[in-house]
C-alpha cells in the first residue's frame, strides 16, 4: 500500500516537473520578449525592466531561472495577463472550476445513467433491448461534440426556447465565487432568492452538460456492457452457476465487482476526452471555463495566459488520471500480477 503511494507520488511529481519545464521553455519559444512572456508585464522604462529582470533572475543561468520560476509558481505568483492585467492565478481560479463543474456533472450523468444501462445491456447481451442500447450508444459516441452542441442549441434554445443560449447564470444574480462551483456558490451566498437562482443556474447548465454528458454516457455504456459480457463468459461464473447460485446472487456477488474493475481505468482515459469536450463546448455556450478562456488568450496573443492555462489544464488531467489509477491499483487485488502501465 505505502509502496504504491510512494511510487505514484514520485510519478506525479516528475510529470509535473516536466510540464512546468515545458511551460518555462515556452516563454523562450513564444514570439516576443522573454521577460514579457514570463511575467505578463510590459516594462515602461529601463529602470523597471532591470528590476523585473532581477526579480525573474533573467540575468542568471537557465537552471536558476527555472528554479526561481518553480518557487514563484508554488507561492502563487503565476504572472499577469496581457489583456486584463489581472493576476493569472485569479483568472485561472475562476475559469478552471467552471470547467471542472460541467465535467463533473457530465461524469455524474455517465455514472447514473451509463453504468446501470451498461449493466443491463451486458446481462441481456444480444437481445433486442441490448442491440438497441448498443446502436444508440454507438451513434451517440460517434457524434462530434461540436455538432451535437449546435443541434441542442438549435432545438432547445432557438426552437423551443426552454434553455438559455449562453452563460452560466442570469445577470440578475450576483453570486460571489467561493468554491467556483456555481450551484454551491449559490447556496453559500446571501441576500438572494436561492430557489430562483438555482433554477436559473440549472437551466444554464442543462445544455452544456447534456452535450458533453451524452458522449461520456455513451462511452460508459459501451465500456460497462463489454466488461459485463466478458465477465459473464468467465469460468468462475459457470462454476458459480453450477453451485446453484441464483442469477441475482451471481450478479451481485461475482459479476458486479469483477466487471467494475476494468471500467475504472477505461473511464480514466475518458476523463481526458471529457475535459477536452467540455473546453470545446464552453466556447459555444460562452461558459466561463478554461477552454473559453484559452481561446480568448489565443485570439489576444496573451502568451503568459496561454503558458499558465496549458500548465493548469495538463496538471488537472494528469492529477485525475494518476489518482484514478492509484485507487484502482489499491482496489484490485489481482492487479499486481499484471503490472499495467501507470498512465
Amino acid at each position: 500500500m505505502i509502496r504504491i503511494l510512494v511510487r505514484y507520488s514520485v510519478l506525479f511529481v516528475l510529470t509535473l516537473l516536466v510540464l512546468t519545464a515545458l511551460s518555462f521553455v515556452l516563454a523562450y519559444l513564444f514570439p516576443g520578449d522573454v521577460l514579457v512572456n514570463l511575467s505578463g508585464i510590459t516594462p515602461e522604462n529601463e529602470v523597471q525592466r532591470d528590476a523585473l529582470v532581477r526579480q525573474y533572475r533573467l540575468d542568471q543561468s537557465y537552471l536558476i531561472q527555472f528554479w526561481h520560476y518553480l518557487q514563484q509558481l508554488m507561492n502563487g505568483n503565476w504572472g499577469y495577463s496581457f489583456t486584463s492585467g489581472l493576476p493569472l492565478r485569479e483568472e485561472v481560479g475562476l475559469a478552471l472550476p467552471a470547467t471542472i463543474e460541467i465535467s463533473t456533472y457530465a461524469m455524474l450523468m455517465a455514472l447514473f445513467i451509463g453504468l446501470p444501462v451498461g449493466y443491463y445491456a451486458g446481462i441481456r447481451s444480444y437481445s433486442l433491448s441490448d442491440r438497441t442500447i448498443n446502436s444508440v450508444s454507438l451513434i451517440s459516441y460517434s457524434v462530434p461534440v461540436f455538432w451535437l452542441a449546435l443541434v441542442l442549441i438549435l432545438f432547445f434554445s432557438l426552437e423551443l426556447g426552454v434553455a438559455p443560449l449562453s452563460g452560466r447564470i442570469s445577470l440578475m444574480f450576483d453570486i460571489p465565487s467561493v468554491t467556483g462551483f456555481i450551484l454551491i456558490d449559490i447556496l453559500l451566498s446571501e441576500h438572494i432568492d436561492h430557489g430562483l437562482a438555482l433554477r436559473d443556474a440549472l437551466h444554464h447548465l442543462l445544455l452544456p452538460t447534456l452535450a458533453i454528458g451524452t458522449i461520456t454516457t455513451a462511452a460508459m455504456i459501451r465500456i460497462t456492457r463489454r466488461s459485463v459480457i466478458d465477465v459473464l463468459q468467465k469460468p468462475y461464473i459457470a462454476a458459480a452457476r453450477a453451485r446453484g447460485l441464483s442469477r441475482p446472487q451471481i450478479f451481485v456477488r461475482h459479476v458486479m465487482r469483477n466487471a467494475s474493475l476494468p471500467i475504472l481505468p477505461l473511464m480514466a482515459i475518458q476523463i481526458t476526452t471529457l475535459i477536452t469536450n467540455a473546453m470545446i463546448v464552453e466556447t459555444l455556450f460562452s461558459w466561463p471555463g478554461i477552454g473559453n478562456w484559452l481561446i480568448q488568450a489565443i485570439y489576444q496573443r496573451d502568451y503568459p495566459a496561454l503558458r499558465i492555462g496549458m500548465l493548469a489544464v495538463s496538471t488537472l488531467v494528469i492529477s485525475l488520471t494518476i489518482l484514478v489509477d492509484m485507487f484502482n491499483r489499491m482496489l484490485d487485488p489481482g492487479r499486481e500480477r499484471f503490472e499495467r502501465g501507470a498512465i
Binding site: K234, P235, Y236, A238, A239, A240, A242, R243, R253, H254, R257, N258, L261, D332, P333, G334
Partner: peptide, 16 residues
C-alpha cells in the same frame, strides 16, 4: 450435485 471443475484457478472469483 457438486462439481469440481478442471482448472481450479479459473473457476474461482479472482476478486473475492
Amino acid at each position: 450435485i457438486a462439481v469440481v471443475f478442471q482448472n481450479p484457478l479459473g473457476a474461482m472469483d479472482p476478486s473475492a
